[in-house]
Write a protein that binds this DNA or RNA. Structure first.
Lengths: 201, 201
DNA sequence: ATCATAGTTGACCGGTCAGTCTAATGCAAG
DNA sequence: CTTGCATTAGACTGACCGGTCAACTATGAT
C-alpha cells in the first residue's frame, strides 16, 4: 500500500522534530498524531508503543546524521585535521539555523535523549550509545589518517576520538543552556588540541 | 514553626534525588509527596507549582555542589593544575557510587535538566546557566593561578575554563550513555590539555 | 465476485497528571 | 481562654496520558 508507508513516515517526521526541539516526555502521542494528521489507531497500527516510535526516530535520525551532517564534515577530499573545522562549523550552522527558526537552540537529539531516558530504558540507552560509537569511529579514522599522513603525532586514536566526541557534546550542551550557538564557534577550535597519549605499557 | 521547615526540606530532598536519577518530566508531584510523607496540600503550601520546586532544587543542589564537590576538588592548598585531577576523580567516584547504589549512572543534575527543559523554560534555563557560570569561574581562577605560578603558559583563561567545563559535561554525558563511570577516568586526564589561546588582536 | 488483509477511523478505557479547595489542626501572642 | 495565622490533611477537579477496540474501507490476489 502507498498511503501506509507515507503515514508511518509522517508520524516519524513529526516525532523527530518534536522530540528534538522539546523532549521525549513532553511530547504526547496525541500531539504527534495531530501534527502528522493521523489517527491514534493508525499510530498504534505501526508502532506498538511510544517507546518503539522513539527507537524508529533514533534510527532514522542516526541515518540522516550519518549521510548528511557527518558525511559532509568528514569529506575524504579534505586534509584530515581540517575536517574537524568543518565539523564544528556544521554543528554551529545547524544549531544556529534551528535557533533562528524555533527561537530555541535544540541541541543534539542523541545527547538530549541520552540524558533524559538512559537511566530509565536500557535498550534506548544502548541504541543511543551505538550512535555515539559510530561517530567515534568516524573521528578515530580521521585521526588515524592524520597520523599516517604525518600531520599529527601518534596518539591513542580511539580514546582521543571519544574525548573529542565528548567535547563536542559538551559544547552543544553549553550552547543550549545559553541558547546561543556562538559558544560552538568560540570554543570549537580547541577540539583539535584534545589528545590522549598511547598507553606506554 | 519547626515542622514546617522540615516539611519543605523533606520535599526538596525527595525531589533532588528523584530529579537527578530520573528526570523532571518523569517524576510527578504525587510521587514526591509520597516519598517525603507529605500531603499535596502541604506541597502547594510551600511551592506554587512543580516548576518552583525545580527552582528550589537547582538552588539547593548548586549550593551542595559549591560547598561539597567543587570546594573539595578546588582545594587551594593543592598546586593549581593538580586540582583538575581531583575534579575528575571526584566526578568519577560520585558517579560510580551512585551507579553502584541505583544501578544507573545519574549524570550531572544540571546537565540533565539543561537538556531536558532549557528549550521549554527560559527562567529555569537561566538558573542552570548561572550554575555553569559559577563553575566556569572556579576553573578560570584556577587557571589564572597556574599561569601566575608559571606552571601553564598564558592563555585565554575564561574561554579555556568554559571549554574545560564543556568537556567535563561531555564526559559525564558519555559515561551516562554507557552507564559506565570508567569513561570519566579513561578520558578525564585530557581536560588539562584543553587550551584556548589569547586572541592576539 | 469475493475474500483476505493492510490500513484507517474515532470513540473509548483506566489511570495519572498538576493543581485546588475546605476543613481541621497546632501553636503563639494578647 | 481566645483569637489569628501558619500548617496539614486529604478528597476532589478536569484535563490529559498512553493505549485499546471494533467497525469500516481500500486494495490486490484468486
Amino acid at each position: 500500500m502507498q498511503a501506509s508507508i507515507d503515514t508511518r513516515q509522517r508520524i516519524v517526521n513529526a516525532a523527530k522534530t518534536r522530540f528534538h526541539s522539546r523532549s521525549y516526555g513532553d511530547v504526547g502521542v496525541k500531539e504527534i498524531c495531530d501534527s502528522a494528521e493521523v489517527q491514534k489507531g493508525s499510530f498504534y497500527h505501526f508502532f506498538p508503543s511510544k517507546r518503539d516510535l522513539a527507537i524508529a526516530v533514533i534510527e532514522e535520525f542516526a541515518d540522516d546524521w550519518a549521510t548528511g551532517f557527518i558525511a559532509e564534515a568528514f569529506d575524504p577530499k579534505l586534509p584530515p585535521m581540517e575536517r574537524f573545522d568543518y565539523l564544528i562549523d556544521a554543528a554551529y550552522f545547524w544549531q544556529k539555523a534551528a535557533r533562528d527558526i524555533q527561537g530555541h537552540l535544540p541541541g543534539c537529539l542523541f545527547g538530549n535523549l541520552a540524558l533524559e531516558i538512559s537511566t530509565q530504558d536500557d535498550i534506548l540507552r544502548a541504541k543511543l550509545n551505538a550512535v555515539f560509537i559510530m561517530a567515534k569511529k568516524r573521528i578515530m579514522e580521521t585521526l588515524d589518517e592524520a597520523v599516517a599522513e604525518g600531520s599529527v603525532e601518534p596518539l591513542d586514536s580511539e580514546n582521543s576520538a571519544e574525548a573529542m566526541l565528548a567535547y563536542l557534546e559538551g559544547l552543544i550542551l553549553l550552547a543550549k543552556t545559553q541558547n546561543n550557538p556562538d559558544v560552538i564557534h568560540r570554543l570549537g577550535k580547541a577540539i583539535k588540541s584534545i589528545r590522549i597519549e598511547t598507553n606506554s605499557l
